[in-house]
């Protein structure tokens, strides 16, 4: 701190306000990536948390943290998995914090759905059953069956070992099927 003078501080402030802040991607690359991933990520967040408002908030936060991350991404898949890892951690934090944003067992059947020629009763059953799963089970199943992620991608996104995914998926499937058939 002894090396920082008042003039340095003023200069840093001026630079921070005037210059473009350095982020991990340029605008064009970010916007293209966002357009490819935002819809799916919002679906993931809304179904894992069971709350649209939470999904809206965490979506913005996820992309901000991705932009701030000083990680050299090897590929688009790597970047996407990292984004899901950030999003998943944010959901866990939101749930485990001193004032959780949502309950562990979410009532997704209460979420309003758009009008359309779909079976409302069946949809409510699926949502209710999905909401009774543990958050990690919901995340596992969603990544596997909604996003079509491989075991290694799921492991990367959830911070788990690849070898454990098969068993965890098996258990989650069983639980969801059992709840659906009740």
């Amino acid at each position: 701190m002894a090396d920082v003078t008042f003039i340095d501080v003023r200069r840093l402030q001026a630079e921070a306000e005037a210059a473009d802040v350095v982020l991990a991607m340029d605008e064009d690359a970010f916007r293209a990536f966002y357009d490819r991933t935002a819809g799916a990520l919002w679906g993931y967040l809304s179904r894992i948390s069971g709350d649209r408002q939470v999904a809206d908030d965490l979506l913005q936060e996820s992309y901000y943290r991705l932009l701030k991350a000083a990680v050299p991404f090897e590929s688009e898949t790597h970047r996407r998995n990292y984004l899901y890892r950030i999003a998943t951690n944010l959901v866990w934090d939101a749930q485990r914090g001193p004032r959780p944003l949502f309950d562990t067992a979410v009532e997704m059947a209460d979420m309003p759905a758009p009008e359309g020629p779909v079976d409302a009763e069946g949809r409510a059953d699926v949502r209710r059953a999905f909401g009774r799963l543990k958050p990690r089970e919901r995340a596992l199943l969603w990544l596997a069956y909604a996003n079509g992620s491989s075991h290694s991608e799921i492991a990367e996104a959830l911070g788990l070992k690849t070898g454990s995914i098969k068993l965890l998926l098996f258990r989650a499937r069983r639980r969801l099927a059992a709840t659906l058939q009740r």
């Binding site: 179904r47 758009p114 969603w142 909604a146």
Partner: peptide, 22 residues
């Protein structure tokens, strides 16, 4: 079940535009 729910989520999703998020 999850494919049906994912299809529904895609129709519900209304994330802000990339310009706003950027």
């Amino acid at each position: 079940a999850i494919a049906a729910e994912a299809a529904l989520a895609r129709t519900e999703a209304a994330p802000p535009s990339s310009a706003i998020v950027w």
